[in-house]
Computed example of a mutant assay.
Amino acid sequence: MIYQDNLKGISSDMLNGFFVGWPDPPSTKTHLELLKKSSNVVVALNDNQTQVLGFITAISDGVLSAYIPFLEVLPEYQGQGIGEELVNQILKQLNRLYMVDLCCDDSLVPYYEKLGLLKTNGMCKRNYKMQSGTLS
């Protein structure tokens, strides 16, 4: 397993299999674009660096705050500590900031609490007609 905090060598064809269960998932091209436009990113690659197995992103003002919108690990690689390592690495990148927030389903609260995050309230708005993004 190789972890990297940049997108060097990452192409859209290495991003298949993510966004499982989404009714209208982003294309791999859109997925690569969201990775590129994130303030911070960590990807987990297989040993021969031909497939992304997991990723995490953050959006930050670089001064006080950041938001983690995505943590995903391919289903066949879940339960192997990849997600935990991705969270640890991005939190290390963001450790100089006052606050790092993320939203998650109630079922995931224990997972994130185990990683040192605190449960809080949050609000969100979803525009489901744009779920796949604006790129094709």
Rank of each mutant, 00 (worst) to 15 (best):
L32T: 05
L34W: 15
L35V: 07
S38I: 04
S38E: 04
S38R: 03
S39E: 08
N40S: 11
N40E: 13
V41F: 03
V41R: 00
V42C: 09
V42G: 02
V43I: 11
V43D: 04
A44T: 05
A44C: 15
A44Q: 01
L45G: 00
L45H: 00
N46P: 02
N46E: 03
N46F: 01
D47A: 07
D47G: 04
D47I: 00
N48I: 13
N48R: 12
N48Y: 11
Q49P: 01
Q49F: 11
Q49E: 15
T50L: 07
T50R: 04
V52K: 06
V52M: 07
F55D: 11
A58V: 08
D61V: 09
G62H: 02
G62C: 02
V63S: 08
V63G: 02
V63I: 15
A66Y: 10
A66F: 07
Y67K: 08
I68E: 08
P69W: 09
P69T: 13
L71C: 03
L71Y: 09
E72W: 00
L74H: 05
L74N: 10
E76L: 06
Y77C: 06
Y77M: 10
Q78M: 09
Q78L: 04
G81N: 06
I82D: 03
I82G: 01
E85Y: 04
L86Y: 12
L86P: 05
V87W: 08
V87N: 07
V87L: 07
V87P: 02
V87K: 02
V87R: 02
N88G: 12
I90Y: 04
I90S: 06
I90A: 09
I90M: 07
L91K: 09
L91I: 05
K92H: 11
K92N: 14
Q93V: 00
Q93N: 03
L94S: 00
L94K: 00
L94P: 00
L94G: 01
N95W: 00
V100A: 04
V100S: 01
D101P: 01
L102F: 05
C104R: 09
D105Y: 10
D105F: 09
D106N: 13
S107G: 01
S107I: 12
L108D: 10
L108V: 05
V109S: 03
P110R: 03
Y111T: 11
Y111K: 05
Y112K: 10
E113W: 06
E113F: 08
L115G: 03
L115I: 06
G116D: 05
L117A: 04
L118A: 10
K119D: 14
K119M: 05
T120V: 14
N121R: 13
N121K: 14
G122E: 06
G122M: 09
K125L: 15
K125C: 12
R126Y: 07
N127D: 12
N127A: 08
Y128V: 11
K129M: 12
K129I: 14
K129L: 13
K129H: 10
M130Q: 10
M130L: 15
Q131T: 10
Q131K: 02
S132R: 11
S132F: 03
